[in-house]
């Protein structure tokens, strides 16, 4: 059951920031995550500030230097279907197309997809867990079949966003405005690991709003892909996933990033895989070594060690695919 709250739909960012500064204010964009969180009493809201009236945030534009600007209110469907994104940033379009279900993609926004709350069933359920200000993480030693194998410390969620891993892999930047003005953050460091602060998922300060995502102009010879393995084929988050953004010269990988999904509390950059593949020809032996390296440092919990062979197998498959173009 929903808490009682007041609802405001300002027409300017400045006004929105002011309202978000009041106690227990929550930002509303697509609402596909906010409303369930309120209903499940994950957190409370006294004021819901909808930014849907701010139309400037709703566009996909190519800039003069060839980079791409995606307004935070752009829907997931629009990202998935945009011809420029599909052509130049395939992994992002693929990831967007894999989000949830058609209804949720029509309603949900790219900004919201980055800022969504974890799906850990303890966090979402009637458990006063560490992330909600409690004393313990229930997943540790509990039902952790869908939890992380990297980066868990205190809290063992996986970050649920499909679009965050490709954005991090493409070295996208995120524009933010807040009470103190504008700032820009690398997508790769937008999310916060529990070891740094267990109560937050992003670097956003109170009353800050994600306004835009900037994708740099793609490099020559860049190939990208997104893969998502899940328990069911629609309306489900990743058990394991990977965004590959690799620059090729011939069959040699010269540059790139590998970001895992369903692996860690944040989109998880696999430096281990990058180290093996960058500078090498992507032959079978390299692929095999890269996939093994991906899980070498994994720390599975009691019920999720299936993720080790899963990530390894998935990486082998995806590296083979990207090698073949």
């Amino acid at each position: 059951m929903m808490p009682n709250f007041s609802y405001i739909r300002p027409e300017s960012l400045q006004e929105a920031i002011t309202h978000l500064g009041s106690a227990d204010a929550r930002l509303h964009a697509g609402g596909t995550d906010l409303l369930p969180c309120l209903r499940d009493q994950v957190f409370d809201a006294k004021k819901v500030v909808s930014i849907n009236g701010i139309n400037d945030l709703r566009s996909i534009q190519e800039t003069e230097d060839g980079s791409l600007r995606i307004g935070a209110l752009t829907t997931i469907t629009e990202v998935a279907e945009n011809p420029l994104i599909r052509e130049r940033y395939a992994a992002l379009a693929q990831a967007a197309a894999e989000v949830a279900s058609p209804q949720l993609r029509h309603q949900g926004t790219i900004g919201g997809n980055l800022c969504q709350k974890p799906r850990c069933w303890y966090y979402r359920g009637e458990f006063h867990c560490l992330r909600k200000g409690g004393k313990i993480c229930y997943a540790k030693g509990g039902e952790n079949q869908f939890h992380c194998i990297f980066g868990g410390k205190g809290c063992y969620i996986v970050h649920p966003s499909d679009t965050a891993p490709p954005l991090a892999a493409f070295a996208a930047k995120i524009n933010i405005v807040g009470p103190k003005g504008k700032r820009t953050v690398e997508a790769a460091v937008f999310h916060v690991e529990p070891s740094k602060d267990v109560t937050r998922e992003t670097v956003l300060e109170p009353a800050e709003i994600v306004t835009e995502i900037l994708l740099p102009r793609p490099l020559q010879g860049l190939r990208s892909s997104y893969r998502k393995v899940r328990a069911r084929q629609a309306w489900d988050f990743a058990l394991a996933g990977v965004a590959l953004v690799l620059q090729f010269q011939g069959n040699k990988v010269t540059k790139g990033r590998v970001v895992l999904c369903g692996a860690a509390p944040v989109p998880w950059r696999s430096y281990e895989v990058e180290k093996v593949v960058i500078g090498s020809a992507l032959d079978d032996a390299t692929i095999s070594r890269a996939a093994a390296a991906a899980v070498k440092n994994a720390k599975p919990l009691e019920k999720n060690d299936y993720k080790i062979p899963l990530f390894q197998g998935m990486l082998e498959e995806e590296l083979q695919k990207i090698k073949n173009g």
């Binding site: 069933w121 303890y122 359920g125 009637e126 458990f127 229930y138 030693g141 509990g142 039902e143 079949q145």
Partner: peptide, 14 residues
């Protein structure tokens, strides 16, 4: 169905 067998006994995937 998943019950939190070890700690609380509550159903987690409701």
């Amino acid at each position: 169905r998943v019950l939190d067998t070890n700690r609380t006994g509550k159903m987690v995937n409701r």
